[in-house]
Design a protein around this nucleic acid. Structure first.
Lengths: 171, 171
DNA sequence: CAATAATATGCTGTACAACAGACTATATTG
DNA sequence: CAATATAGTCTGTTGTACAGCATATTATTG
């Protein structure tokens, strides 16, 4: 199993002294790389990256209302309103009254929306694997798995998931 | 070496089917978790997270001018201008004329700035390790190393995003 | 059942950050 | 010296997050 070799190499290269804040720099770099590839991949999708994410969540997670949808993607409700407006205009989703609660709207994908999603999912998957193409395949698998685990851990630890309550001004 | 066990477990848990775009969701979750902890950690630092990053880069990387500094942190020059204004007002850095090029300004930390940075670096380091506290220590090490590798790879592959070849000698 | 609170969504206004473009001062090059 | 490039600053525009209020519906309570 040469995975161990990869791990050893990875752990080794970590032996270089790490600055506080360097993890953030690396995360930012990775996220920027991801976003730029993602943006290219969803070129033409209504509302771009956000549109894809919303459509994907609607199709694959079937949230009961807008609030649940927004909470999952950490999108503010007022932002989700005009995001959905745009997707409805594009004909990929519909707002229908929620069956159990007439205050709420259930978001369902149209057939067009499903077809569009399938089409773009291939491109997004390609973009994701291209992002990881610079490191070994087994390392990439490990990385993706560990990021997933950490994300789950953070997700579990965040009760309200309201991430921007600390917008402080300078003195 | 039980590191191999960790890797196996990680790779295993990946066997669950992954949606296109899920990597992005996970990355977003991790980055949000990081940022919220980071923001708490730099509470009181002038200009918050950005201020810390700028001060850290000034002290540890000694960029020759504002352009190099901004390129490293991927901060727009116009944004860096008022960010530095704020840091200068706070007395943590100074703008001095660059010795080799009188068009440019060299940013140097004051003694106060260095002291402040040291103080906050402890808090940031604690925040970073707290972020990773939910997963095994060896896994965290692997994750940090792999993110670093991937970040380096993306950094190398990006021609326009950070044109700081003048100072490309990082670990 | 009436009254009140809570919830889901929509709408409006504000604040801040990103970005493009103009401008000044200096460098470099032919 | 003239022409062009670069470093930094300043200004104006745009996009987006968020708070606050409004409306419709549901839940709760007396």
């Amino acid at each position: 199993m040469d995975a161990m070799t990869d791990l050893s190499r990875a752990t080794e290269s970590r032996s270089a002294p790490t600055l506080p804040g360097e993890l953030g720099w690396n995360l930012g770099m990775v996220l920027r790389g991801y976003q730029s590839r993602f943006e290219d991949a969803v070129q033409g999708m209504p509302s771009g990256v956000r549109g894809f994410q919303v459509l994907s969540a609607v199709v694959h997670r079937d949230p009961p209302n807008q609030q649940a949808l927004g909470a999952h993607l950490v999108i503010d409700r007022t932002v989700l309103t005009y995001l959905l407006d745009s997707l409805v205009r594009a004909g990929v989703v519909e707002r229908i009254p929620a069956p159990t609660d007439r205050r709420a709207r259930k978001i369902v994908a149209t057939d067009e929306g499903r077809a569009l999603l399938e089409q773009y999912e291939e491109r997004v998957a390609a973009a994701e694997s291209e992002l990881l193409s610079g490191i070994d395949e087994s390392e990439a698998g490990t990385l993706v798995a560990l990021i997933g685990r950490l994300a789950m851990d953070i997700h579990r630890a965040q009760p309200g998931a309201s991430p921007c309550e600390a917008m402080d001004h300078l003195p």
